[in-house]
């Protein structure tokens, strides 16, 4: 079950770290970074139905 309620212990700090991680990267390097990050986070979640819900949430929110 996808958790869509606030769960980050420090949202501002995470957001800042995320943006800072992309500093100095080309678009291609950023895309590669994001891909690696998604795979790392997906493994942390693990559960396929939850991941499918996350994919759907991302697809329908843009």
């Amino acid at each position: 079950m996808l958790n869509v309620t606030p769960n980050l212990s420090n949202p501002d700090a995470f957001y800042e770290a995320l943006i800072r991680s992309h500093e100095g990267l080309s678009d291609a390097q950023s895309a590669a970074f994001n891909a690696r990050l998604i795979l790392i986070l997906a493994n942390q979640i693990g559960d396929l139905p939850t991941l499918l819900e996350a994919l759907e949430a991302a697809r329908t929110s843009g």
Binding site: A28, A31, A32, A35, R36, I38, L39, I40, N43
Partner: peptide, 23 residues
Amino acid sequence: AISHTFRNAVLDLASRFPFARPM
């Protein structure tokens, strides 16, 4: 292009992290 990016992300992670190897 994005499919290629994800494919290489898996390969880049796999040598260091066991979790990526099954992919």
